[in-house]
């Protein structure tokens, strides 16, 4: 349970995060200069939440309320993970340490932490270190590449983040039928918000919130996951 063990356990997550946040950096470079894109990653450490946030900032119709609501619902699952994790931590994990280290609660870091018997503050710090560096550095490199690479290449790299989203969703659809149902509803609603005139006036952030809430609500209502708890519900 040392810092070094945490570093080692966190290294594959750090590498993976570098790749994902590189794509986030590319996407962000179309809207902001590289320091501003990187600052988003350094203060948030979320994937879906940040990307939705970026879209709201880019949308002229976006509002602060919309940003708060979208961030809240998209990142609400971290609260669930935080609750589970708080039962696994060692007694010396005090309030200040929890406040400082809470940013490390992401899907992947949480999953690794929960596989440990006991989580000490120093181990959790080690575990979060490389993912944090990978996430920030990947964004930085991506945002700079987005500014200097030719348009044809950034055009192609622009779909990388979507590709990763597909790579997270499709494997779950393969093993869990009800997720297919949830995804079909979410996509159908999302297309309706884009193409159906009365709905297409709704801003991007609210459209994402409504799609996700309605689809998740019906899926949870019709197909509750019997043995789900915060330990195994994470999208790895």
């Amino acid at each position: 349970m040392s810092y070094l063990k945490g570093l080692k356990d966190g290294s594959p997550i750090g590498l993976g995060y570098f790749a994902v946040s590189f794509s986030f950096g590319i996407a962000g470079s179309k809207i902001f200069s590289w320091p501003l894109v990187t600052l988003i990653s350094m203060t948030n450490l979320t994937s879906a939440g940040q990307f939705a946030g970026l879209q709201i900032m880019a949308d002229a119709a976006g509002t602060f309320i919309e940003m708060a609501l979208a961030t809240f619902f998209i990142n609400l699952r971290y609260s669930l993970m935080a609750i589970s994790l708080s039962q696994k931590v060692s007694p010396d994990f005090g309030t200040v340490k929890r406040l400082l280290l809470a940013t490390g609660i992401t899907d992947e870091i949480f999953a690794v932490a929960m596989s440990q018997k006991r989580v000490t503050p120093i181990y959790f710090l080690g575990l979060s270190t490389l993912p944090y560096i990978g996430w920030s550095l990947g964004t930085l490199v991506g945002a700079i590449c987005g500014e200097i690479l030719p348009a044809m290449v950034t055009n192609a790299l622009g779909v990388a983040l979507y590709g990763m989203f597909v790579a997270i969703v499709v494997p779950q659809m393969k093993v869990h039928g009800p997720t297919v149902f949830a995804v079909v509803i979410a996509v159908a609603l999302s297309c309706a918000f884009k193409f159906f005139p009365p709905l297409s006036g709704v801003s991007v952030g609210f459209a994402i919130i409504i799609c996700a809430l309605v689809a998740s609500f019906f899926a949870a209502w019709l197909f509750p996951m019997q043995n789900v708890n915060a330990d195994d519900e994470v999208a790895k």
Partner: peptide
């Protein structure tokens, strides 16, 4: 069970709604 399931579905519905038709 309902709320845990609901939160478990959220990442997948968010990601798919953000991907299609935006891609």
């Amino acid at each position: 069970v309902f709320w845990s399931s609901f939160l478990a579905y959220v990442p997948y519905t968010v990601l798919s709604a953000m991907t299609v038709p935006a891609i």
